[in-house]
């Protein structure tokens, strides 16, 4: 394993963020603040759907650089 692939593997830790974000409902199970009429319990995970797509795309893009293989 060369240093460049090792460095890239570090980006995979980003994939833990969605678990931290929505894994435990106690973090967001509340009414306020509301957004566009949605209680926090409903808008907050929806925001995380978008963030998860972005995070996963970043990980995908970063690992597509040089280096013959990656996993």
């Amino acid at each position: 394993m060369n240093p460049s692939t090792t460095g890239k593997k570090g980006w995979l830790w980003l994939l833990l963020l969605p678990f931290i974000g929505v894994g435990w409902p106690g973090l967001y199970a509340s009414m306020n603040p509301e957004l566009l009429g949605f209680p926090k319990f409903y808008w907050y995970p929806i925001v995380w759907i978008v963030l998860t797509g972005i995070i996963t795309w970043i990980v995908y893009s970063v690992t597509s650089g040089a280096g013959g293989t990656e996993d």
Partner: peptide
């Protein structure tokens, strides 16, 4: 509220899928 577990479920499935 309990029924809304489907949303975090279909969020965390994608990092797992990616790996």
């Amino acid at each position: 509220a309990m029924g809304f577990f489907a949303v975090p479920y279909t969020i965390v499935v994608f990092p797992i899928m990616y790996l």
